[in-house]
Design a protein around this nucleic acid. Sequence first.
DNA 1: CGCGAATGTGAAACAAATTCATTAAATTCA
DNA 2: TGAATTTAATGAATTTGTTTCACATTCGCG
Lengths: 301, 301
Amino acid sequence: MRIDFRHLRTIKAIHDTGGLARAADQLNMTQSALSHQIKGIEDQAGVALFARRTKPLRLSAAGEKLLAAAEDILPRMAALEADFAGLVSGKAGRMHIAIECHACFEWLFPVLEQFRKAWPEVDVDIRPGLAFDALPALRREEVDLVVSSDPEDLSETDFTPLFDYEPVFVASAQNPLAAKSVIEAEDFRDQTLITYPVDRARLDVFSQLLTPAKVEPAALRQVELTAVILLLVASNRGVAVLPDWVVSQIKYNADYVTRPLTKSGKTRRLFAATRAEDTQRPFVAHLIRLARQEAVRMQRA
Amino acid sequence: MRIDFRHLRTIKAIHDTGGLARAADQLNMTQSALSHQIKGIEDQAGVALFARRTKPLRLSAAGEKLLAAAEDILPRMAALEADFAGLVSGKAGRMHIAIECHACFEWLFPVLEQFRKAWPEVDVDIRPGLAFDALPALRREEVDLVVSSDPEDLSETDFTPLFDYEPVFVASAQNPLAAKSVIEAEDFRDQTLITYPVDRARLDVFSQLLTPAKVEPAALRQVELTAVILLLVASNRGVAVLPDWVVSQIKYNADYVTRPLTKSGKTRRLFAATRAEDTQRPFVAHLIRLARQEAVRMQRA
DNA sequence: CGCGAATGTGAAACAAATTCATTAAATTCA
DNA sequence: TGAATTTAATGAATTTGTTTCACATTCGCG
């Protein structure tokens, strides 16, 4: 007989009530069961848990140690059960997010800030390094929501539209291309293109424009932060293609101009991908609602 | 099915080995048993522990929580088992001591200091407030050793002699009684008697002299510390009766004199009382040995 | 699409914990 | 002190729960 939670509860009840019979009552068992139980542990561990000389049972040194362990462990177990209860009731859960679209950090943070306040028991995180296989990771429950602009027709996966945007060309006012009213793929041939440090397939400018047109820019430069990209563009160190809302949001410098792109002039749409089973869960639906609201607020800006 | 240590071990093994079959192997069970086990918890708690979509089983949010609990609790349990092992092997244990003789603090502390170093895993303590019923408390395993000068013929209880002493009368050199070479019970009638704050029955001066002679001192004063008793005696605020070794040990002041007591001039003996079952345990026997050594050292002083 | 590896399932076998009935022991109180 | 009462221990029977066995199912990968 291995020591077990049952035994911890037993020793605690005996100590609390001061007797086998009362403890048995509290635990809804017979006195005999408890007697057998403690005999079991004593045999197994080879120590006496109680001083048997006296009639109301008293803890021995070993018994005190077991009791101490019980008082450590039982509350920890209660906490676990509370966790589970939270999970079942829907108040708690996990919301680990993968974003394929790098610029999306910009609007995601305020959304998550609101969300955290509304669902304090939900474990929120953004998982980096999944820009690639984010949808398989969603299916595998490695993450719980993927922000993506390339919906696939997967059963078990829902794509909820968040908002529409348009990739726009950004360049310094000094750049010769500023003179053109519309930018085409060929225009990139002699430019330094500044992008986020992610795979080409995940960048609208490549997937929508340059790759189909088989155009390679003169140089590439990868920059992490949107503000820094715009700074570099403004000082004519290169050109970029960013979602329209990013450009209108961040106005550190008026020295750059924006121009539509021919081929990808068409509107793109951003989606929240979730597992079908989760889409209706209260906190998942709420996060998506918050994200759409934030998008509206942002478009107005 | 209640959550159980078995389940904690299971979830940990599955996580560590990354598969049911391998985990089953590690736990010396069949894969099927684990499958049933997991299903059991999931049904009981109403949460999924694993993402079932993927083939190598992956933990779900609830599973992560259970794993976290396992990693909290299992080491605590291992510690308990180590405690028990120590208890069984005799390296660990409890040594709670009751002293009927109040002066004994004086020589007990250095003994316990040595003892603690020799037996770091034994829980050493001095239990106050048991000057009375110390022997019953010993039998009830409330304490493990009683320092007593009144051995009783109890089965199950051993009395091991520690050392002999003589209660001696102490008074200021200015006190008229200093002129007498031997002090008798009647001499206390017009004196202030200073004693430890314990029951009369536990004080040699009453049990051996005044109570049999039906003599009541003019006044009583109870003082906690031996050094303070001697201070008060030296400044002639009262007289006291103390074990000879106490008086010879503490020589803060030479202004007091010591005189033998007629009636109780006979030697008294101090014993270590232990439960018969414990007397031969290594650390119990060692403590008694240390105590006798300290007594010899002290008598020489 | 099918093979192999991994997991799930149900019935039966097995093991373990609990109960019932009773005994033994210690404590209380008259 | 001794009878009454409370409290714990024991052993056999029963119930409960866990594990195994044999087989079905699912998934991933070539």
